[in-house]
Design a protein around this nucleic acid. Structure first.
Length: 497
RNA sequence: GGCGCCGUAGCCAAGUGGUUAGGCAGAGGUUUGCAAAACCUCCACACACCGGUUCGAAUCCGGUCGGCGCCUCCA
């Protein structure tokens, strides 16, 4: 049984879809006016693991994650760039999809765009007007929060206690048109000279929240099983979605609300508006995308994830210790996978060996960790045990006259399959990843493969002549450059420290 | 003003009423011509502070201090 913390009830509770065996999952996607940053990466990795785990647990998941391609920030950025808003949105949608793929996230089953759902948005707004949950004011349409008595239930706040304008971002003109300060726009009239879309209430653009109500309903129906997003969406975005959707349908909007914590920098939230962010792709230039994925899983999904980096005297970023550590773990994972895959057939014999507990129990441990509110740090602890077990297995197989049983090897392989299935780790070709890590580090250190290969050849010659002093001198000079040599039965290979 | 979160050993980070989290770093060891990798052992007798409840609290309750988030940009 999967238990997840639910924001609405503020407790961990069993995840129970309406229809047993099926899960309708909606996750709020990005507004595509810039590159995805680490905060987005974290968020979508969290829901990716959630969807993978639900599927691995036997649920037929319909995963919907929208793209907000109509938004004031897109209009503003496009105007600054002198390009069409849709062109800008389309471009960043592509970049976003590339970044998600590099993180190893599965594509959602449906990725709806606001620009393709205006009719549904109009219908929803009209329905709210018909039910007196909304009103028209000067070409704008607002939701009347006082018409929805349970307004505030998700974010656990009381309309009378809220401080209007506490965020210091209120628009005086807009406030004048509202009946209550917390009323929010369903439709906003477009000023002259600004791109707009024709609607029954005049030319304008949709309010921020209505899109998700309209699109989730269009693709998943009136009641979702699970809705996810960043903690910053609890209020007002998700609160307003509830008001809109339940106001229109009269049915519960969503059975389970999941929110992930922020990525932080110096204990402050990473956000586009603060400008304190690193984009996913600039990080990918420094470390394996899978290391970024791994890093996001090192803390519980609801806790803050603090990012550190090192600077040189000029203030340039020189490194990210956490990503470097994560990349070493990823390298360890793939090195282990490679060892298992390359066990010589002669070492694996048909005999009834029993797998070690850390291998035999890995799949269950993984599932149990994720069942308990998606506890990824515990899952990674189980992974550490598993990899240690696989290395012991390989050590045993490769020892003098060593042999291991086929069942044990099969269990280890199944462990890797489960790892991929639930956490989305370890799915790539081991050799490719390891070489890419090595070559990226070598390039960063100014080390060329050719010079290393030459040095290795010289050292091999020196060793053949038993000239160990010279062999060790070569090793020492390479070590200084961060090159590590590994003498194996099939020759000498190298990695970068 | 309202609502909420956090404070765990050198560092990162789980757990949350009584039994080893895990990782990194560090120290020994197996192995190796030397190394590396891998594995083994050790490693903290940790839980911001002060009270209270309890047979027993880092874990529950109250308070204090420190940090953070949201209260119509946000993942």
């Amino acid at each position: 049984m999967i238990r997840l913390y639910d924001t609405l009830t503020a407790e961990k509770k069993p995840f129970e879809p309406q229809e047993p065996g099926k899960a309708k999952v909606y996750v709020c996607g990005p507004t595509v006016y810039d590159f995805a940053h680490l905060g987005h990466a974290r968020c979508y990795v969290v829901y990716d693991v959630l969807v993978r785990h639900l599927r691995a647990s036997g649920l037929a998941v319909t995963y919907v994650r929208n793209v907000t391609d109509i938004d004031d920030k897109i209009l503003k950025r496009a105007a600054e760039n002198g390009e069409l808003p849709q062109a800008l949105a389309d471009r960043f949608t592509e970049h976003y999809r590339e970044d998600m793929a590099r993180l190893g996230n599965v594509a959602p089953d449906v990725e709806p765009k606001v620009s393709e759902h205006l009719p549904q948005i109009f219908a929803l707004i009209q329905s709210l007007l018909d039910k007196d949950h909304a009103y028209v004011a000067d070409g704008d349409v607002y939701f009347a929060v006082e018409s929805f008595p349970s307004y505030g239930k998700l974010s656990h706040r009381d309309l009378t206690q809220m401080k209007a304008g506490a965020s210091e971002r209120v628009d005086a003109d807009q406030s004048a048109r509202k009946r209550h300060p917390a009323d929010f726009a369903l439709w906003k009239a477009a000023p002259d000279g600004v791109q707009g879309w024709d609607s029954p209430w005049g030319r304008g653009r949709p309010g921020w929240h209505i899109e998700c109500s309209a699109m989730s309903q269009a693709h998943l129906g009136e009641t979702l099983d699970l809705h996810g997003g960043g903690l910053d969406l609890v209020f007002p975005h998700h609160e307003n979605e509830i008001a809109q959707s339940e106001g229109a349908s009269g049915k519960p909007y969503c059975r389970h609300w999941v929110h992930n914590g922020f990525v932080e920098v110096d204990k402050t939230k990473m956000s586009k508006s603060l400008g304190n962010f690193f984009t996913a792709r600039e990080l990918f230039e420094r470390v394996e995308p899978e290391a970024v994925r791994y890093f996001t899983m090192t803390v519980h999904y609801r806790a803050p994830l603090n990012l550190d980096w090192t600077l040189d005297d000029a203030g340039n970023v020189t490194g990210f210790p956490q990503f470097e550590e994560a990349e070493r773990r990823i390298a360890y994972l793939y090195a282990t996978k490679q060892r298992l895959e390359s066990l010589p057939a002669a070492r694996v014999i048909d005999r009834p060996d029993v797998p070690a507990p850390e291998i035999a129990g890995f799949q269950k441990a993984l599932a149990a960790a994720l069942d308990d509110d998606l506890n990824m740090p515990i899952a990674l602890a189980a992974l550490s045990d598993f990899l240690k077990g696989v290395n012991e297995l390989c050590d045993a197989a490769m020892a003098k006259k060593g042999k291991v049983g086929t069942k044990v090897v099969a269990a280890a392989r199944e462990g890797f399959a489960a790892l991929h299935g639930r956490l989305g780790l370890g799915a790539q070709d081991a050799r490719t990843v390891l070489l890419r890590i090595r070559d990226r580090r070598a390039a960063a250190a100014g080390v060329s493969a050719a010079e290393v290969e030459q040095a290795i050849a010289d050292r091999v010659a020196a060793r053949a002549e038993k000239d160990f002093a010279r062999a060790d001198a070569i090793r020492a000079s390479l070590t200084e450059k961060g090159v590590e040599l590994h003498d194996g039965p099939d020759g000498t290979t190298w990695t970068m420290a």
